[in-house]
């Protein structure tokens, strides 16, 4: 089954100022995680911060509106995502549990297994 792991956080996460060594170590741990799970990972991306986002809003009977900023308006933000292909939820959970990056939460979302007709994409 395909899942997307969403690496989530909040805007006001208390982050201790990290030393260059800490950053290096986290990168090394993420690298080890990637090589351990490499065969299950389709793609993985870190996203630029939410203030770099641009959103296109669709409202009924109106032309799309382009808005500055992310769609999620609360404190929550998505910092990155990873597409994985594993046997079941427990395997996805095992990957998420061992994720070494500095994230508040990893949300696991199953991917709809078939391709939707384009006109249904927005319903």
């Amino acid at each position: 089954m395909k899942y997307i792991l969403l690496f989530c956080g909040t805007r006001d996460d208390p982050r201790p100022a990290s030393s260059p060594e800490d950053v290096q170590r986290t990168y090394a741990e993420v690298g080890a995680w990637l090589s351990r799970h490499g065969s299950r990972i389709g793609s993985i991306h870190q996203l630029q911060p939410p203030d770099t986002a641009t959103t296109v809003l669709f409202e009924r009977q109106r032309p799309p509106i382009v808005k500055d900023g992310p769609f999620l308006e609360g404190k929550e933000l998505v910092g990155g995502y990873c597409e994985i292909d594993v046997a079941n939820l427990d395997e996805a959970l095992e990957m998420a549990r061992t994720w070494p990056g500095r994230t508040r939460a990893v949300e696991i979302r199953p991917v709809v297994p078939h391709e939707l007709p384009r006109e249904l994409d927005r319903s």
């Binding site: 089954m1 899942y3 046997a87 079941n88 939820l89 427990d90 996805a92 095992e94 696991i108 199953p110």
Partner: peptide
Amino acid sequence: VSAGIPYRMPSPEE
């Protein structure tokens, strides 16, 4: 069904 919860015994680690 949709989240893929398996029908299995958890491993000793789980």
